[in-house]
């Protein structure tokens, strides 16, 4: 559930909401409408955002094992879907719990850090051209959060050492 709305519902446990709270409630409901629209837009354009990014990725990592590239693509498919849901719910914890807490070990073991970070960059470029600035502003913080988590995964060289 939307965390901002949820906190207002909790606040109304034993009293009426204040005018300021009601004002916030109205704004949150309005913002939810924008997020639903952005969610639908991302859902419909998942392929057109990801496929060009993946094509550039395969060019950039020509000599790499295709299975590893596919694995990284699967990770970002999941990240995009969970990020979209987290955006809809206005809840970054959702993204962390469902995928981000889980991913760094996989990225480390398969030594995917460089591929995943490059894919983030490419997806962001595609998202910028496919989404409106407002929609991009809604989803971007979640993608950035995923990037930050993957950035902290140990790179291949550090792992080998």
């Amino acid at each position: 559930m939307d965390t901002a709305l949820q906190s207002l519902i909790y606040a109304a446990d034993d009293h009426y909401l204040s005018d300021a709270d009601l004002d916030r409630f109205g704004k949150d409901v309005q913002a939810l409408g924008d997020r639903i629209e952005a969610y639908e837009y991302i859902r419909e354009r998942e392929l057109s955002i990801l496929q060009p990014a993946v094509d550039y990725l395969t060019e950039e990592f020509l000599g790499s094992d295709p299975k590893l590239l596919e694995r990284a693509v699967m990770h970002w498919l999941s990240i995009l879907r969970y990020a979209a849901m987290a955006m809809l719910l206005n809840n970054s914890e959702y993204l962390s719990r469902r995928i981000l807490e889980w991913l760094p070990d996989l990225v480390e073991v398969y030594q995917l850090r460089d591929i995943e970070l490059a894919l983030y960059r490419l997806i962001l470029v595609q998202a910028k051209s496919s989404l409106s600035p407002e929609q991009l502003a809604l989803i971007k913080p979640y993608l950035e959060e995923a990037y930050a988590v993957l950035l902290n995964a140990k790179p291949a060289l550090q792992k080998a050492a």
């Binding site: 998942e46 392929l47 496929q51 693509v73 699967m74 999941s78 469902r98 889980w102």
Partner: peptide, 13 residues
């Protein structure tokens, strides 16, 4: 990507 989505199991916790 379309084939990957169709054939593979998306990772999740």
């Amino acid at each position: 990507v379309k084939e990957l989505v169709r054939e593979s199991h998306l990772p999740s916790n």
